[in-house]
């Protein structure tokens, strides 16, 4: 897997099939010298409840995400996954530490960061009365894309995800949750983000939709030159899709490696079965079914 990543880093950029021309130019301008994401000692606290209790959502996290890889963030509910994604998305401010996206500091160069990222959240955030077409054109204009180019591109992406052109005109509220999530992914891809943040994109989907979305992420890995950060609490999904995985527990990264590396680590060092479940149990001391009871509902929805 490492070899593939290194090849992606050193090879000429893969032609972008989903990009509008100007976005392509913008992407080409990203300096290859920088990793996709560098996070150093990132910390985020929230004050919650009437007693104004301080909750540590992300604790001294340092990450280095390479270009072109799918980087998984695995953790139970409330472990800080979504907070970490929101920090990278400029939707939260840092309490301590720093984050760079393709060499752009997310505090000092917020607009430059916004231009190269997009995010798919666990809940497909749309104007539900509007059609997919209306929502996608809105998104395209926000990112400075030509509406006609965006429409053609949206049709192509949605067709790949199994949504026909005739569905584009109906309100999103008439679509299933799975279809809405596919439209959300199409919307994110429309802007050709150099960094795609997928925050539990398959949570709550029916098995068929989940497989469709996972297959599409795999296809992205093979055909698209985006870097993807994927948060999930689905062990199989993390193993299947991610080049490297960081396990997050109580806001801190407790281990990071390739799926194979993690499994080998628990087998060799801890004598546990070489499975992702063992990895998770070993490094967090609990199963994924154990929701943290931290009352940080304000800080994290993962």
């Amino acid at each position: 897997m490492t070899t593939v990543i290194e090849q992606q880093q050193t090879a000429a950029p893969v032609p972008m099939r989903t990009a509008a021309a100007e976005t392509t130019v913008r992407r080409r301008q990203l300096d290859d010298a920088f990793p996709a994401v560098v996070a150093e000692h990132v910390t985020k606290r929230f004050i919650v409840g009437r007693k104004r209790k301080s909750v540590l959502a992300v604790s001294d996290v340092s990450l280095r995400i390479r270009r072109g890889e799918i980087y998984g963030v695995l953790g139970a509910n409330g472990s800080g996954k979504s907070t970490l994604i929101r920090l990278m998305s400029t939707l939260l401010t840092l309490d301590a530490g720093r984050v760079e996206v393709f060499g752009h500091d997310i505090v000092r160069e917020e607009m430059a960061v916004k231009q190269v990222i997009n995010r798919v959240s666990v809940d497909a955030a749309f104007f539900k009365k509007l059609s997919p077409h209306e929502n996608l054109i809105y998104a395209a204009r926000l990112y400075g894309l030509d509406a006609r180019v965006a429409r053609a591109e949206a049709i192509r992406i949605l067709a790949r995800l199994g949504i026909g052109e005739k569905r584009l005109g109906r309100p999103l509220e008439q679509m299933s949750r799975g279809m809405q999530q596919k439209v959300a992914i199409a919307r994110a891809l429309l802007t050709s983000p150099a960094l795609l943040l997928l925050d539990e994109p398959t949570t709550g989907l029916d098995p068929r939709s989940k497989l469709d979305v996972q297959a599409f992420i795999e296809e992205l890995r093979d055909t698209h030159d985006s870097t993807i950060v994927l948060t999930t609490h689905d062990l199989d999904e993390a193993e299947r899709l991610c080049d490297r995985i960081a396990v997050l527990n109580d806001g801190a990264v407790v281990v990071e490696d390739t799926p194979e590396g993690l499994k080998a680590m628990v087998a060799e060092r801890h004598g546990a079965a070489p499975t992702m479940e063992s990895v998770f149990m070993t490094f967090t001391g609990r199963s994924l079914d154990d929701d943290t009871n931290a009352d940080e509902s304000d800080s994290d929805d993962d």
Binding site: N118, A125, L142
Partner: peptide
């Protein structure tokens, strides 16, 4: 509508 974060994240 649930779109506030999406709009504020846009460039």
């Amino acid at each position: 509508e649930g779109t506030l974060e999406y709009t504020l994240m846009a460039p």
